[in-house]
């Protein structure tokens, strides 16, 4: 079985090629799943649901990557602010990626519940 790069998303989805930008890309795509947003609105939305603030350079590097991969597309600029929206390809990639993450989350939580919540083991 081929070894997977630890930095790649476990699902091998289209986000796999994003490397260290898979995190920001996931956050951006999740934010755009709610509807088109420009840069600042994206930052605030991500901050509200994920508790992290994407720095401007990081945000636009991820936006450029997502746009070049066809996962998002730019809309007409509104007073110097350009909104972006999720494409079908982006929605598919996000769905696959989040489903894989959900499987990892589910397995991790189940194993924690079994092995790390008993009174004999305590909470390590």
């Amino acid at each position: 079985m081929a070894k997977r790069d630890a930095r790649e998303p476990a699902d091998g989805s289209a986000l796999a090629g994003f490397g260290r930008y898979a995190g920001p890309a996931t956050l951006i795509l999740s934010s755009l799943a709610d509807g088109p947003k420009h840069g600042y609105a994206l930052t605030k939305d991500v901050e509200s649901f994920a508790g992290v603030r994407l720095a401007p350079g990081t945000l636009y590097e991820a936006l450029a990557r997502l746009e070049s991969q066809g996962m998002i597309e730019a809309l007409e600029a509104e007073d110097r602010r350009r909104p972006y929206r999720l494409t079908t390809a982006g929605a598919t990639a996000l769905k696959a990626h989040l489903a894989a993450q959900a499987r990892v989350t589910e397995v991790g939580l189940r194993r924690l519940a079994v092995n790390w919540s008993s009174p004999t083991l305590g909470t390590a």
């Binding site: 600042y40 720095a55 401007p56 945000l59």
Partner: peptide, 24 residues
């Protein structure tokens, strides 16, 4: 244009930030 708008908003919200210039 859009990046400048984002930076202006970010600067007005957080005037002091070391992370922003390093990131840019």
């Amino acid at each position: 244009a859009e990046f400048t708008e984002l930076l202006i908003a970010d600067i007005s919200e957080r005037p002091r930030s070391l992370r922003r210039p390093l990131d840019v």
